[in-house]
Nucleic acid binder design. Structure first.
Length: 191
DNA sequence: CATGGGATTGACT
DNA sequence: GTCAATCCCATGC
């Protein structure tokens, strides 16, 4: 992935991230579900403005914004748009590719479909923690790379975002059409 | 300093 | 379907 990839409107980046591969150590998976968030809408953490918590989200594009959700889970975002703009893509589900045995051990589960089918599940499976907040997604230790050949021409569909209470009507959730590795089924709105 | 609210998950009815 | 776990941090006094 080139640095300029993330320095664009988050609504352009999010659907293009579907099919790209997230790697951390020996574990990796293809992104099958992601959501866009932008400071201009109230569901985004950036909506409150620049705070200690949102410092990375407002920083330069191409970094990982990792935060604790419900006091329990670490959630992974890819920071987008120019330095100073609070925007990012929440990675919500992966199709496991490598290190599946390690994922099973970390998750304490066997079914491949249950390993990364949710934003808190995939960070646990890949061993991503809160102190990964701010790491460079081009240099690592968390890396996002372009679509493998088999994923080059996949169909991407849009739907409403999940688990939020504000701006629920925006169709800013993107999934790989027909994937069985998403966190929840989709309804089909656009491409 | 006290309070309240989550971009969730898994266990249980 | 319901519900608790658990912790950062924003907000308000």
């Amino acid at each position: 992935m080139k640095p300029s990839f993330y320095n664009r409107p988050v609504l352009e980046v999010a659907p293009e991230l579907i099919g790209c591969v997230v790697t951390h150590g020996e574990t990796s998976g293809a992104i099958v579900e992601a959501e866009a968030y932008h400071e201009s809408e109230p569901a985004s953490h950036g909506f409150i403005g620049l705070r200690p918590r949102t410092e990375v989200l407002f920083g330069p594009p191409g970094r990982a914004y990792v935060y604790r959700s419900y006091g329990v889970h670490a959630l992974l975002n890819a920071v987008c748009e120019p330095d100073g703009v609070g925007a990012g893509v929440l990675i919500r589900a992966l199709q496991p590719l490598t290190g599946v045995g390690l994922m099973r051990r970390r998750r304490g589960l066997q079914r491949e479909r249950d390993l990364c089918s949710g934003p808190g599940k995939l960070t646990q499976a890949l061993g991503i923690e809160l102190d990964d907040n701010g790491v460079d997604l081009l240099r690592g230790p968390i890396v996002i790379s372009s679509r493998p050949p088999a994923w080059r021409d996949i169909e991407v569909v849009a739907d409403r975002r999940i688990g939020i209470t504000r701006a629920v009507e925006l169709p800013w959730r993107f999934t790989a059409a027909g994937s069985r590795f998403v966190s929840r089924p989709f309804r089909l709105i656009a491409v």
